Deep mutational scan, measured.
Amino acid sequence: MTEYKLVVVGAGGVGKSALTIQLIQNHFVDEYDPTIEDSYRKQVVIDGETCLLDILDTAGQEEYSAMRDQYMRTGEGFLCVFAINNTKSFEDIHHYREQIKRVKDSEDVPMVLVGNKCDLPSRTVDTKQAQDLARSYGIPFIETSAKTRQGVDDAFYTLVREIRKHKEKMSKDGKKKKKKSKTKCVIM
């Protein structure tokens, strides 16, 4: 069974824990209790493949930012979460993405942009803004509501699919490099 290491990042209060708990335990946590770091595991079937999701729910508070490099190193894919009623959390996505790329030393890291709290009427981040940002990053965008469960499975499952595509691409690139290195030079 394939294991996928997913990391949920975003500013404090955007609903990272609520999304994760909704996926794992099928219930909505409405009281806000700032996370330092929590880890969850769940076995699911995605596109006919049974897999184990190892999900790291991270601290959004700035005082825990020193811990970010460590979990970013171990993560295979990242859910970059903002709240649709919090423009600052949307603007912060850029910083999370840049930090992930720096730590992973790669421009090509599996990510999904997630606009959470889409059940709320007080939207300050337009869907088109988020779609445009995701398009500019070359990553999928999904709106979710941890409260109603809308888009929750889709967000995590899409990230797994992005990781699969990335692994497939990397193995193809690896095979191309191996083929090239088999060419021999004969000096007579």
Rank of each mutant, 00 (worst) to 15 (best):
Y4I: 08
Y4C: 08
K5Y: 00
V7C: 12
V8Q: 01
V9P: 00
V9T: 01
V9R: 00
G10I: 00
A11P: 09
V14S: 12
V14G: 06
G15C: 00
G15Y: 00
K16A: 11
K16W: 00
S17N: 13
S17D: 01
A18T: 07
T20R: 11
T20Y: 05
T20P: 15
L23W: 11
I24Q: 11
I24T: 13
Q25M: 04
H27W: 05
H27N: 12
F28M: 11
V29G: 14
V29L: 09
V29M: 12
D30E: 08
Y32D: 14
Y32H: 12
Y32V: 11
D33A: 09
D33K: 07
D33P: 10
D33E: 13
P34Q: 08
T35H: 07
T35I: 00
I36R: 07
I36D: 07
I36N: 13
E37C: 12
Y40T: 13
R41Q: 12
K42M: 07
K42Y: 05
K42G: 10
Q43V: 06
G48L: 02
E49C: 05
E49M: 02
T50M: 04
C51N: 10
C51Y: 10
L52P: 11
L53S: 04
D54V: 03
D54A: 04
L56D: 13
L56G: 13
T58E: 09
G60V: 06
Q61K: 08
E62I: 08
E63Y: 04
Y64V: 12
S65K: 06
S65R: 05
R68Q: 13
D69V: 01
D69W: 01
Q70Y: 04
Q70K: 14
Q70L: 05
Y71E: 14
M72I: 12
R73A: 11
G75R: 06
E76V: 15
E76M: 14
E76P: 01
G77W: 00
F78C: 03
L79E: 00
L79S: 00
C80P: 00
V81N: 03
A83H: 04
T87I: 09
T87W: 04
F90Q: 03
I93A: 02
H95V: 04
Y96P: 01
E98I: 01
Q99D: 01
I100A: 02
R102I: 04
V103C: 04
D105T: 04
D105A: 10
D105F: 01
S106I: 10
S106C: 14
E107C: 13
V109T: 02
P110V: 02
L113S: 01
L113T: 01
L113H: 00
V114C: 05
V114P: 00
G115N: 03
G115D: 01
D119S: 02
L120T: 11
P121L: 10
P121A: 12
P121H: 08
P121G: 14
S122G: 14
R123Q: 12
T124A: 13
T124H: 12
T124R: 09
T124P: 11
V125M: 12
V125E: 13
V125R: 09
D126R: 05
T127R: 10
T127M: 14
T127K: 11
K128R: 11
K128Y: 11
Q129V: 13
Q129I: 14
Q129Y: 05
Q129F: 03
Q131F: 04
Q131R: 13
D132R: 07
A134Q: 02
A134D: 03
G138N: 12
I139M: 14
I139R: 02
P140I: 09
F141T: 05
I142S: 01
T144M: 14
S145N: 11
R149Q: 03
R149W: 04
G151R: 03
G151C: 11
D153Y: 14
Y157K: 14
Y157I: 15
Y157G: 13
T158Q: 12
T158L: 09
R161Y: 14
E162W: 02
R164Y: 04
R164E: 13
K165H: 04
K165D: 06
K169E: 13
D173T: 08
D173R: 02
G174R: 04
G174T: 15
G174P: 14
K176H: 13
K176G: 13
K177G: 13
K178L: 13
K180S: 15
S181K: 04
T183R: 09
K184Q: 07
C185N: 15
V186N: 15
I187T: 15
I187R: 15
M188E: 15
